[in-house]
């Protein structure tokens, strides 16, 4: 996994609450057996005017000129600003894969759905939860100034560039550590193999029916 330390980039405001993972990446694109290539279909139904199909050349499709990511000023955005309950619904990890493939490695919102939030960390995406007022301010900033950029510094756990000054954010220390170092969870857990085996032995005595072949 790619380490996340510091990120500076254009910030695109998606002003809509309860953005679900079906909206982030519609089902017809979940048929891939790979982790990459989902970027052109990120927010497919909002971004294009027609119904997208897998394996289609999306550069030839009619785009929705009103959708925020289609506005020239947000081209190349790396940070996505969102509203409450971002990523609700299906557990599909294709949602963070699509965000990452498009170029987003940070999402800032007042709240996230649990499974999506968790999936982000497994893919080197930093989801930042801020207060509503702080998110409102960033929406104003990103809409006021063309080319508005934020810098997200995970080491210092602050966001710089807002007209409101530095914004501190908090993040679970284990997740922060893994992101900063690009650590593979599985490798870390396997270091606990003895503990897992010990648990299994104890559990097998208490609940042998769970270990019947």
């Amino acid at each position: 996994m790619q380490a996340f330390t510091q990120l500076t980039g254009i910030t695109a405001p998606l002003d809509r609450a309860n953005v679900d993972t079906d909206m982030i990446i519609p089902k017809q694109f979940l048929k891939s057996i790979k982790r990459s290539g989902f970027g052109p279909n990120l927010f497919d139904e909002l971004r294009y005017l027609d119904e997208g199909q897998p394996d289609q050349d999306s550069s030839q499709r009619p785009i929705n000129p009103d959708f925020v990511l289609n506005l020239p000023r947000y081209k190349g955005a790396k940070i996505l600003l969102a509203r409450d309950n971002f990523g609700c619904g299906s557990s599909r990890e294709h949602a963070p894969w699509a965000l990452l493939d498009y170029g987003f490695s940070c999402v800032i919102a007042p709240s996230f759905a649990d499974i999506f939030y968790n999936n982000c960390f497994k893919n080197g995406i930093l989801p930042i939860t801020l207060l509503n007022e702080q998110v409102d301010q960033l929406f104003i900033d990103s809409q006021a100034e063309e080319g508005f950029e934020l810098t997200v510094d995970l080491e210092a756990s602050v966001i710089r560039g807002s007209s409101a000054g530095e914004i501190a954010f908090s993040i679970d220390s284990f997740r922060r550590h893994c992101l900063l170092n690009g650590l593979d969870d599985i490798g870390l857990t396997l270091e606990q193999a003895d503990n897992i085996k010990r648990y299994e032995q104890k559990r097998q005595q208490q609940a042998p029916w769970l270990f019947a072949k």
Binding site: I115, N118, K122, N123, D185, I186, T189
Partner: peptide, 12 residues
């Protein structure tokens, strides 16, 4: 769970 966790459960 997400797919990374599917892999995590399979492996650990």
């Amino acid at each position: 769970i997400g797919t990374s966790e599917v892999e995590h459960v399979l492996a650990t």
